[in-house]
Structure formats: C-alpha cells, structure tokens
Design a protein around this nucleic acid. Structure first.
Lengths: 227, 227
DNA sequence: TAGATTGTTAATCGATTAACAATC
DNA sequence: TAGATTGTTAATCGATTAACAATC
C-alpha cells in the first residue's frame, strides 16, 4: 500500500512469527527430550539426526525439520551436542521453571499419579491432592494430605499451581474442571472419559485409556477381516 | 493399458478401498461412541450432527465427514438414530467381539488399570496380570492372581489375548514388549516413557503422562512470555 | 580436500473446513 | 410445500518426506 514491497523475511521466520512452533512438532518435542536424556545418561556427548530420530522412533527428516523450528543448534558434518540440544528443547518447551500440579480425584489412578516419580524428573512438582470423598480427605498419599474439594481454590493460590490433573469419574469431571479453571489453572490433563468445556485461555489434553484400546481394536479387526 | 478408460468409482470409494478409514478419523470414533452412549443413557433417540459434534467436542462438518467414511447412517432433514449409529461405529471399530487384554507390570499404575471398570464397559476384558517381582507374583489384584513373566506366553495362548498393556518402568519396557509380541499379541498400549520397537504387524500406542504435561507447559509458557 | 551431516526447500500427502445440493 | 439436516464437494490448510545445497 505504501508503494513499495515490504522487506521479506525467510518463509520459516514469517510462519514462526505468525504461529510459532507447529502443534505436531510441539507434541514430539518431549519424545526428543527423553531420547536426549537417555543418550546423556549413557555418556554420549554428540549425536546425529539419524541416531536421535531412531531413538525417538521418527524419521530423521522429520526430526531435523522439527528442530529447525527451535533454531540452528547442530553443526553440519558433525551433529548435535547432546547437552546443548537438551537445554534448547527444554527452553522451547518452557521447562526451565518448574511447574506445579494439583491432582483431583485420589482413587486408584490418582494414587498412582501422585506416586509417579516421572513427574519430578521431568520438570513438574505435585503440590496438592484433592478429593470429594470425606473418607479419603485427611489421608496422606505420597507425602501429601488429601484436601477437600472446597479448598481447591486456596490450594492453587497458595502453591501457584498452573496445571490441574483430573482423575475423577466421568460424572464429576466437568464440575472439577470448572473449579480448576475458576481457581486459576491454565492447563488441564484429564483421564476422565468425557469431553470437557473450558474457556479459550485454558488448554486441555485428554488421556482416555479405553479409547486407546478401541483404536488398537480397530487395527486388530482390520487385520483379522478385510485389509 | 487395455485401450479404454476404466470404470470410475466415486473418489471416496476409491480412497476407502485403497486405504480405509483415515487414521485421524479412527482416532476420533471412540469419542463419538462415548457421546452416543451418553445420549442413549439420557434416553435420547435421535440426534443431529450439531448436537453430537458438540458433545464430542468437534465441529459438525468434521463429524459428518468422519461418519461418511463408515457409510450413510443418517437421514437428511432428520438426523441420526442414536442406537443404530452406535452400533455402526462399534462395527467399524471392531468392537462386536470382546478383546482380551493382558497387563504387564502390577505397580501402582498396573493396579489402577486392572481395577478400571471402564474397560469392561467398552468392550475389553482383562484376562491376565503379570509381574517380574516375586513379591507381587501370587497376590490377587482385581480378582486375578498375578503370574510371573515367564508364564506370559502360556497366558496369552490360554486366554487368546490380543492386546498387551505395559505398565512397567521404562527400563523393562522393551523386553516386555518383545515378550508380548513373541507371545502373539498384535496391539500394545504402553505407559512406559520410551519408544518401543515392534515388527510391522504389531500396533503400538503410547501414553506418556509426563510428555502430556510438557506439552501443556509449552502453552503455559507461550502465554506467560511472548505470544 | 573428501566425507559427513545439517538446515531448508519444494513436492506430496493428508486433514480440516465451509458451503451447498440432495433429500427427508 | 417449507424447513431442516445430511453427505459430499472443493478449497484451504497443515504435516510429512525426499532431496540437496550449504558447510563443518
């Protein structure tokens, strides 16, 4: 409109500025980080896109394309420094500061999640346990006392938790979700088998174990019958 | 080659014949089924793509496109019969015969999974529990006696299990996976945080809870910083 | 230099979405 | 018939992949 064509940035930079790292890439970054940590634990100092992709279970072209969204952290002809790349992936994912997690629903699954050591290893701290059942409230699980649902807001405020984990029955999930949102969490991971409604600023990810099995059943079925 | 153009089928039919239902669609079908069952439980007899999509948390265009891969089970101007569509989705997923599941790794998580009633409700039967720890072997969990790892093959054979569920530590997962494949399962759902290597005829799905949290952390981080 | 490996391009492929003709 | 809603089309969008120039 000003009569001259604007300065052109590289395509990738423009896309990055517009939309950031693509969701499909973000979803694979934790897998790369896992593979990098495994390599570091084995004492490997330098790796290649071939080796790392193989460890992560993806193609090397995809790995390089994914990493290119973060920047240029490899050396042509050499590969990637394991420690340095780990750090950069952690920076990209925002794992440089620990995030605090509240678990709601301390049944079998909530119990297992509260005791899962993999959270602390990977940047998360479980800071609160909440349940609606008076018989469960007051018990100690994984070193934390289980608190009643009506204290959720105070717990989130006191601990500055940003992530809520829902391990309740499906029937209670939306109500708990609303309470978590109201309390101020911005990310929710739910294991309850139903879809949740949240405002746009809140991010929900859902793990439904029976759905996963049904997807496996489809492939089993295809193999057994037609194709 | 024969000198005349071949008969043309509709595009969708050709694609369907070639590759079947797209993976992204298959992954959403369990969610539709859940929503349909919820509607049925409320006594709703007929639904629309708008209502069903809303329940499942997707757009109505996407829902109709997805269902079109299964066939034409709606009535223009009317909607879908809840019971009939449920059945058709179940047929498409191969849920008309119950599939049997073996769980390996009876720690906190394996325990929770063994006791999860959602499996039976949705077409799966837990028929075997296996653990490597002699202290766990012999105990009864969810009505089943935990058996040692070296009996895995016999259990799969005796129960005709087709799906294996891995709830072991990461370090044991590949070994357990190999044993499951060797025993004859064709679908594996793993909760261990590492990638698994399987032959092409075996299907693996992975749930990594800490990875899910890391993906949530990314969005939290983006919100807090730049975009 | 010669060999190796990245980062990027461009082509392909698959998924999503809006719009609407078909039809109940 | 008029209104409603599907099933399908076609356009757009995003993801994957192979190939290779850049460069260590």
């Amino acid at each position: 409109m000003a009569g001259s064509s604007p300065e052109r940035e590289p395509v990738a930079a423009r896309a990055s500025a517009r939309r950031g790292i693509p969701p499909a890439t973000v979803a694979r970054l934790p897998g790369y980080l896992r593979a990098l940590h495994a390599l570091a634990a084995e004492g490997v100092v330098t790796t290649s896109s071939d080796e790392l992709a193989d460890r992560a279970g993806v193609g090397s072209a995809q790995l390089r394309k994914d990493l290119s969204w973060l920047g240029s952290y490899g050396r042509r002809g050499v590969g990637y420094d394991v420690e340095h790349l780990s750090s950069q992936v952690e920076v990209a994912l925002g794992l440089t500061t620990q995030r605090r997690v509240v678990i709601v629903g301390i049944g079998n699954l909530g119990h297992a999640l509260a005791n899962y050591s993999g959270f602390a290893d990977r940047g998360f701290g479980v800071v609160g346990l909440v349940d609606a059942d008076p018989a469960v409230v007051g018990t100690t699980v994984a070193g934390l006392v289980v608190r009643p649902l009506d204290e959720l807001r105070a717990i989130v405020a006191a601990t500055d938790a940003s992530i809520g984990l829902i391990a309740t029955p499906a029937a209670a999930a939306q109500e708990v979700c609303d309470a978590l949102v109201e309390a101020g969490v911005v990310g929710i991971l739910t294991f309850a088998p139903r879809s949740l409604r949240v405002p746009p600023h809140v991010d929900v990810r859902a793990v439904d174990v029976a759905s996963e099995l049904q997807i496996l059943a489809f492939h089993d079925h295809r193999r057994a019958t037609g194709a």
